[in-house]
Protein backbone atom coordinates (compact mmCIF):
# COMPACT_ATOMS: atom_id res chain seq x y z
CA UNK A 1 0.00 0.00 0.00
CA UNK A 2 2.69 2.46 1.11
CA UNK A 3 4.92 1.35 -1.74
CA UNK A 4 2.20 2.02 -4.30
CA UNK A 5 1.48 5.49 -2.83
CA UNK A 6 5.22 6.22 -3.00
CA UNK A 7 5.52 4.95 -6.56
CA UNK A 8 2.52 6.99 -7.71
CA UNK A 9 3.73 10.20 -6.06
CA UNK A 10 7.48 9.62 -6.14
CA UNK A 11 8.38 12.87 -7.82
CA UNK A 12 6.08 14.98 -5.63
CA UNK A 13 7.35 13.34 -2.46
CA UNK A 14 11.01 13.74 -3.39
CA UNK A 15 10.48 17.39 -4.37
CA UNK A 16 8.63 18.08 -1.11
CA UNK A 17 11.42 16.39 0.85
CA UNK A 18 14.04 18.51 -0.94
CA UNK A 19 12.07 21.68 -0.16
CA UNK A 20 11.69 20.71 3.52
CA UNK A 21 15.38 19.89 3.76
CA UNK A 22 16.26 23.22 2.14
CA UNK A 23 14.09 25.12 4.64
CA UNK A 24 15.54 23.15 7.58
CA UNK A 25 19.04 23.79 6.23
CA UNK A 26 18.36 27.54 5.91
CA UNK A 27 17.47 27.78 9.62
CA UNK A 28 20.13 25.42 10.97
CA UNK A 29 23.70 26.06 12.13
CA UNK A 30 24.85 23.68 9.42
CA UNK A 31 24.30 26.45 6.88
CA UNK A 32 26.89 28.66 8.60
CA UNK A 33 29.30 25.75 8.95
CA UNK A 34 29.07 24.94 5.24
CA UNK A 35 29.24 28.63 4.33
CA UNK A 36 32.53 28.93 6.23
CA UNK A 37 33.85 25.71 4.72
CA UNK A 38 33.19 27.02 1.20
CA UNK A 39 35.50 30.00 1.61
CA UNK A 40 38.73 28.17 0.63
CA UNK A 41 37.00 27.03 -2.55
CA UNK A 42 36.10 30.61 -3.47
CA UNK A 43 39.66 31.72 -2.68
CA UNK A 44 40.88 28.97 -4.98
CA UNK A 45 38.48 30.13 -7.75
CA UNK A 46 40.36 33.43 -7.89
CA UNK A 47 43.68 31.64 -8.37
CA UNK A 48 42.47 29.60 -11.37
CA UNK A 49 43.28 30.79 -14.93
CA UNK A 50 39.65 31.97 -15.25
CA UNK A 51 39.98 33.92 -12.03
CA UNK A 52 43.31 35.41 -13.13
CA UNK A 53 41.98 36.50 -16.54
CA UNK A 54 38.72 37.76 -15.06
CA UNK A 55 40.53 39.88 -12.47
CA UNK A 56 43.33 41.26 -14.61
CA UNK A 57 41.79 41.65 -18.06
CA UNK A 58 38.73 43.84 -17.77
CA UNK A 59 37.87 43.64 -21.47
CA UNK A 60 37.73 39.83 -21.36
CA UNK A 61 35.51 39.92 -18.30
CA UNK A 62 33.19 42.47 -19.92
CA UNK A 63 33.02 40.45 -23.15
CA UNK A 64 32.09 37.30 -21.26
CA UNK A 65 29.47 39.35 -19.37
CA UNK A 66 27.99 40.39 -22.72
CA UNK A 67 27.92 36.76 -23.95
CA UNK A 68 26.24 35.85 -20.66
CA UNK A 69 23.59 38.49 -21.40
CA UNK A 70 23.03 37.18 -24.94
CA UNK A 71 22.65 33.67 -23.48
CA UNK A 72 20.18 35.05 -20.99
CA UNK A 73 18.21 36.60 -23.83
CA UNK A 74 18.07 33.31 -25.74
CA UNK A 75 17.08 31.38 -22.62
CA UNK A 76 14.38 33.96 -21.96
CA UNK A 77 13.11 33.67 -25.52
CA UNK A 78 12.84 29.87 -25.19
CA UNK A 79 11.05 30.17 -21.83
CA UNK A 80 8.63 32.83 -23.11
CA UNK A 81 7.82 30.86 -26.28
CA UNK A 82 7.20 27.55 -24.49
CA UNK A 83 5.43 28.91 -21.44
CA UNK A 84 3.53 31.45 -23.50
CA UNK A 85 2.22 28.51 -25.54
CA UNK A 86 1.28 26.58 -22.39
CA UNK A 87 -0.62 29.65 -21.19
CA UNK A 88 -2.38 29.84 -24.55
CA UNK A 89 -0.96 33.29 -25.28
CA UNK A 90 1.54 32.50 -28.04
CA UNK A 91 1.72 30.16 -31.04
CA UNK A 92 -1.69 28.77 -30.12
CA UNK A 93 -2.08 27.27 -33.62
CA UNK A 94 1.06 25.17 -33.19
CA UNK A 95 0.78 21.96 -31.10
CA UNK A 96 1.95 22.64 -27.53
CA UNK A 97 4.15 19.55 -27.59
CA UNK A 98 6.03 20.81 -30.65
CA UNK A 99 6.65 24.25 -29.13
CA UNK A 100 7.73 22.82 -25.76
CA UNK A 101 10.07 20.22 -27.28
CA UNK A 102 11.68 22.57 -29.79
CA UNK A 103 12.08 25.32 -27.19
CA UNK A 104 13.71 22.87 -24.82
CA UNK A 105 16.63 22.31 -27.19
CA UNK A 106 17.27 26.05 -27.43
CA UNK A 107 16.83 26.34 -23.66
CA UNK A 108 19.47 23.67 -22.96
CA UNK A 109 22.06 25.31 -25.24
CA UNK A 110 21.38 28.71 -23.71
CA UNK A 111 21.67 27.25 -20.21
CA UNK A 112 25.02 25.64 -21.08
CA UNK A 113 26.28 29.01 -22.38
CA UNK A 114 25.01 30.75 -19.24
CA UNK A 115 26.64 28.23 -16.90
CA UNK A 116 29.97 28.34 -18.77
CA UNK A 117 30.14 32.14 -18.84
CA UNK A 118 28.73 32.34 -15.32
CA UNK A 119 31.51 30.12 -13.93
CA UNK A 120 34.12 32.29 -15.66
CA UNK A 121 32.61 35.46 -14.24
CA UNK A 122 32.26 33.97 -10.76
CA UNK A 123 35.96 33.05 -10.76
CA UNK A 124 36.92 36.64 -11.55
CA UNK A 125 35.00 38.09 -8.60
CA UNK A 126 34.84 35.04 -6.35
CA UNK A 127 35.55 36.70 -3.02
CA UNK A 128 33.21 39.58 -3.78
CA UNK A 129 30.26 37.32 -4.52
CA UNK A 130 31.07 35.01 -1.62
CA UNK A 131 30.06 37.82 0.75
CA UNK A 132 27.01 38.91 -1.28
CA UNK A 133 23.68 37.50 -0.05
CA UNK A 134 22.12 38.23 -3.45
CA UNK A 135 24.64 35.87 -5.11
CA UNK A 136 23.45 33.04 -2.88
CA UNK A 137 19.83 33.94 -3.63
CA UNK A 138 20.69 33.66 -7.31
CA UNK A 139 22.31 30.26 -6.80
CA UNK A 140 19.24 29.17 -4.87
CA UNK A 141 16.96 30.42 -7.66
CA UNK A 142 19.17 28.77 -10.30
CA UNK A 143 19.15 25.46 -8.43
CA UNK A 144 15.39 25.67 -7.96
CA UNK A 145 14.95 26.60 -11.64
CA UNK A 146 17.03 23.68 -12.90
CA UNK A 147 15.40 21.25 -10.50
CA UNK A 148 11.98 22.52 -11.52
CA UNK A 149 12.73 22.47 -15.23
CA UNK A 150 14.38 19.07 -15.50
CA UNK A 151 12.77 17.19 -12.64
CA UNK A 152 9.20 18.50 -12.65
CA UNK A 153 8.33 20.45 -15.77
CA UNK A 154 10.00 18.27 -18.41
CA UNK A 155 8.72 14.90 -17.13
CA UNK A 156 5.24 16.37 -16.69
CA UNK A 157 5.14 17.80 -20.20
CA UNK A 158 6.51 14.55 -21.64
CA UNK A 159 2.94 13.28 -21.26
CA UNK A 160 0.27 14.16 -23.79
CA UNK A 161 -0.24 17.80 -22.79
CA UNK A 162 -3.88 17.80 -23.89
CA UNK A 163 -4.67 15.14 -21.29
CA UNK A 164 -3.13 17.12 -18.42
CA UNK A 165 -5.18 19.33 -16.12
CA UNK A 166 -5.09 22.77 -17.83
CA UNK A 167 -4.80 24.55 -14.48
CA UNK A 168 -1.70 22.50 -13.60
CA UNK A 169 -0.19 23.21 -17.03
CA UNK A 170 -0.78 26.95 -16.63
CA UNK A 171 0.62 26.95 -13.09
CA UNK A 172 3.73 25.16 -14.35
CA UNK A 173 4.14 27.78 -17.08
CA UNK A 174 3.74 30.68 -14.63
CA UNK A 175 6.16 29.07 -12.16
CA UNK A 176 8.70 28.54 -14.95
CA UNK A 177 8.53 32.17 -16.12
CA UNK A 178 8.79 33.44 -12.54
CA UNK A 179 11.72 31.27 -11.55
CA UNK A 180 13.81 32.17 -14.61
CA UNK A 181 13.04 35.87 -14.32
CA UNK A 182 14.01 35.55 -10.65
CA UNK A 183 17.34 34.03 -11.68
CA UNK A 184 17.90 36.90 -14.13
CA UNK A 185 16.82 39.62 -11.68
CA UNK A 186 19.01 38.36 -8.84
CA UNK A 187 21.90 38.05 -11.31
CA UNK A 188 21.43 41.66 -12.38
CA UNK A 189 21.27 42.75 -8.76
CA UNK A 190 24.71 41.23 -8.09
CA UNK A 191 26.07 44.05 -10.25
CA UNK A 192 24.47 46.66 -8.03
CA UNK A 193 25.74 45.15 -4.80
CA UNK A 194 29.06 45.06 -3.03
Amino acid sequence: MLTSVYEQNKRTLITSAVLLLAIAFAYSDLRLTIYGALMPMFEWFETTPFGYVGKTWGAAFATVQAVHLVGLGVLGGAVIAADGRLLGLLLSDVPAKTVVDRSHRVFVWALIALLATGIFMACGVAMKIYYLPVYWYKMLALGAGMLFHFYIRKPLLAHDIDTLNPVVVKLVAIASILVWFMVAATGRWIGFSG
Binding site: V74, L75, A78, V106, A185
Partner: peptide, 16 residues
Protein backbone atom coordinates in the same frame (compact mmCIF):
# COMPACT_ATOMS: atom_id res chain seq x y z
CA UNK B 1 17.27 45.95 -14.44
CA UNK B 2 14.07 46.24 -16.48
CA UNK B 3 16.16 47.32 -19.48
CA UNK B 4 18.37 44.25 -19.12
CA UNK B 5 15.62 41.77 -18.24
CA UNK B 6 13.54 42.84 -21.22
CA UNK B 7 16.34 41.22 -23.25
CA UNK B 8 14.64 37.95 -22.44
CA UNK B 9 11.48 39.06 -24.19
CA UNK B 10 12.75 41.21 -27.04
CA UNK B 11 16.11 39.87 -28.17
CA UNK B 12 15.32 36.38 -26.89
CA UNK B 13 12.28 36.08 -29.14
CA UNK B 14 14.04 37.83 -32.03
CA UNK B 15 16.87 35.29 -31.80
CA UNK B 16 14.35 32.44 -31.84
Amino acid sequence: STHVLTLMVSIGILFL
